[in-house]
Computed example of a mutant assay.
Amino acid sequence: MTTHYRRHHRSPKDELLPLTVVLDELGITRASWYRWRNRGLGPKVHRLPNGHLRVRRSELDSFLREMEES
């Protein structure tokens, strides 16, 4: 008896990145990050229940593409 398994096509996991990873990828300091945020710049930020900040991979990638285009 042959069992057939369905292959599910999953999109890549849109992980929540810690702020340190985001800062490294942007090449900026934490102080610059908060200046950007005060000016309404940067990717959307998600605050976890413990207060830590995270940025979705897709939102960071989108933000970087927008910066390259401008």
Results as ranks from 00 to 15, higher is better:
Met1Ile: 12
Thr3Met: 09
Tyr5Trp: 12
Arg6Leu: 14
Arg7Glu: 15
Arg7Cys: 15
His8Arg: 13
His8Tyr: 12
His8Thr: 15
His9Thr: 13
His9Val: 15
Arg10Leu: 15
Ser11Leu: 11
Pro12Ile: 06
Pro12Leu: 08
Lys13His: 13
Lys13Ser: 09
Glu15Met: 10
Glu15Asp: 13
Leu16His: 02
Leu16Pro: 02
Leu16Gly: 01
Leu17His: 01
Leu17Asp: 03
Pro18Leu: 07
Pro18Gln: 08
Thr20Val: 00
Val22Glu: 04
Val22Asp: 05
Val22Pro: 06
Val22Ala: 05
Leu23Thr: 03
Gly27Trp: 00
Gly27Asp: 00
Thr29Cys: 06
Thr29Asp: 02
Arg30Gln: 09
Arg30His: 01
Arg30Val: 03
Arg30Trp: 02
Ala31Tyr: 05
Ser32Arg: 10
Ser32Lys: 10
Ser32Trp: 02
Ser32Tyr: 07
Ser32Ala: 14
Trp33Val: 07
Tyr34Glu: 04
Arg35Cys: 03
Trp36Lys: 06
Trp36Tyr: 13
Trp36Ala: 07
Trp36Cys: 03
Trp36Glu: 05
Asn38Ile: 04
Gly40His: 02
Gly42Cys: 11
Gly42Glu: 09
Gly42Ala: 11
Gly42Val: 07
Pro43Lys: 02
Pro43Leu: 00
Val45Ala: 04
Val45Asp: 06
Arg47Trp: 11
Arg47His: 13
Leu48Val: 07
Leu48Lys: 12
Leu48Tyr: 04
Leu48Arg: 11
Gly51Trp: 07
His52Gly: 10
His52Ser: 14
Leu53Thr: 07
Leu53Arg: 08
Leu53Glu: 11
Val55His: 01
Arg57Phe: 05
Arg57Ile: 05
Glu59Asp: 14
Glu59Arg: 10
Leu60Thr: 12
Leu60Asn: 13
Leu60Ala: 15
Phe63Trp: 14
Phe63Met: 11
Leu64His: 01
Leu64Val: 11
Arg65Glu: 13
Glu66Trp: 01
Met67Tyr: 02
Glu68Val: 00
Glu68Arg: 07
Glu68Gly: 00
Glu68Ala: 06
